[in-house]
Amino acid sequence: MVEPAGKNRSVEGRVWIALVAALALLAVIPGAIGNRFYAHVLVLILLYASMAQSWNILGGYCGQVSFGHSVFFGIGAYGAGMAMVKYGTVPWPGVIIGAILAAAVSAVISWPCFKLRGHYFAIATFAIVEIFGRLFLVWDWIGGALGLDYPIMDDSWKYFLWSSDKTGYYAGALVLFVLVFGVVRRMERTRLGYYMRAVREGQETAESLGVNSSLVKLMAMALSAFFAALCGAFFAQYNYRVDPPMVVSLDMSMKFVLITILGGMGTFWGPLLGAAVLIPLQEYTRTYLASLGPGVDQMIYGLLIIFMMMRQPRGIMGFIGEFSGKAGKTAKKGGDDNAAS
């Protein structure tokens, strides 16, 4: 895992600001976004990057690989959906309630699950997704299998709905992206950030040094869930509909995991890089390779994942590390520069 030390961190800081500025510029230039297909791809990239980064907090920085994030994503989506459809109001209270609820649910389910290690934990998270997914399907109060369909409304920030011009969605996705990435960047340097990495590198060792690993994991989980829920709310607003298989599913959970790992788990840029590669691939192969026959786009997707995992499991950041000659340096070395020991 690449750890930014001293000078690298300020380079990274400058790149971050430049990137945000460039993306923000796109939102401001009239007609740059519009209803173009790349606008849709950009919105998805920013959304999935945010999702991946929220997973990264728990999975990458804290080392707890969970396949359960689609539950929090779903809670956020239903928060927004229920506000819009069942209660007929603006989505924002639903978004906040959903995010807080997701964090609370994450605390409840994680408390017992964190006693589990390795693959047992991972499978427990699958089980949780399946349980929630199926329960949502029979829970009539939230619409059950019928789902929640959004009413047709004019474009507005108040309701966060747009049809022809995606600029609003793009701006919203950008805000979400800056929020999640910004918090993670901050967090890297706080005590919590270091404790998380300590737990990741060796839980018993960290505990022997006085780190309350349970609390650390819990906080990472809650933060991770909170952001995942915000992403879910955006997803609901973007698609005009929420139903259980759309949001609470193993497929969706795998997206959280895959994008982060493909980009580079535990790194700041990993989630963005992963999304920037996987999402355009997914969208463009589906639309442009349809003539090759059904399923070809997904075969390519599968092959790409296999290839990446065989060649460079550290993801794109791993490739970059090789490319710019940092292959010899390990995470430990970078960590030593800044470790609070």
Binding site: R14, V15, L19, Y38, L272, I316, I320
Partner: peptide, 25 residues
């Protein structure tokens, strides 16, 4: 050089994704 290289590579990735989108779009 490493720092610039790294920065360049990262920007390259982001830009290429953007360009690809525009061209194909």
């Amino acid at each position: 050089m490493n720092g610039i290289l790294e920065r360049r590579v990262m920007l390259l990735f982001a830009l290429s994704a953007l360009i690809l989108s525009v061209v194909c779009g």
